[in-house]
Amino acid sequence: MNIFRLCGDMSHLAAIIILLLKMWKTRSVAGISGKSQILFATVFTARYLDLFTSFISIYNTCMKVFFIGTVYFTIYLIYMKFKATYDSNHDSFRVEFLIVPVGGLAFLVNHEFAPLEIIWTFSIYLESVAILPQLFMISKTGEAETITSHYLFALGSYRALYLCNWIYRYYAEGFFDLIAVVAGVVQTILYCDFFYLYITKVMKGKKISLPA
């Protein structure tokens, strides 16, 4: 563990807590993409299959349980509890256009042609594009609530911090995982446009409204 990875995990934790607070306080899921949350649930489920078979640390296990628990709770809030406030018309991204190519790529490009490794690779590739339905929804509605912007900023920062973690681990431990790094770079790049809007707008107390 290093400071970059710890900050990344805390940023990820903060994003999930911000999202839950937004939903619970406003009792609304307006502006939140249920499809992205379903993709995140798929990512966590695929990645944490070893939750019960391999023990890394208390921290690792607790975070995995928390991430899996909260993402399914979020889906419950979107599609059941606060269903009336879910904006399905604007949450129209065709996720099959993500899952099929990502699934195929995981079969073709992986470290080892073994079931758990391919499923892990699938979760890495899927995570890099899982935010697309959410960003697509914001571009369709033309705006994002400020708290949703904070959620996205924390979520985007988490993988950017992981990139720093991989740079550190390369020089400190000689550790390098090309698949995770490439997917992490793609994932972070997808947020760049949003980061720009966040820093130029939200930091000045304005709301994000597109086209900027």
Binding site: D50, I56, N60, K64, F67, D177, L178, A180
Partner: peptide, 10 residues
């Protein structure tokens, strides 16, 4: 090889 065999990251 240097891949992420020990999967210690979240």
């Amino acid at each position: 090889d240097n891949n992420n065999n020990n999967k210690d990251e979240l």
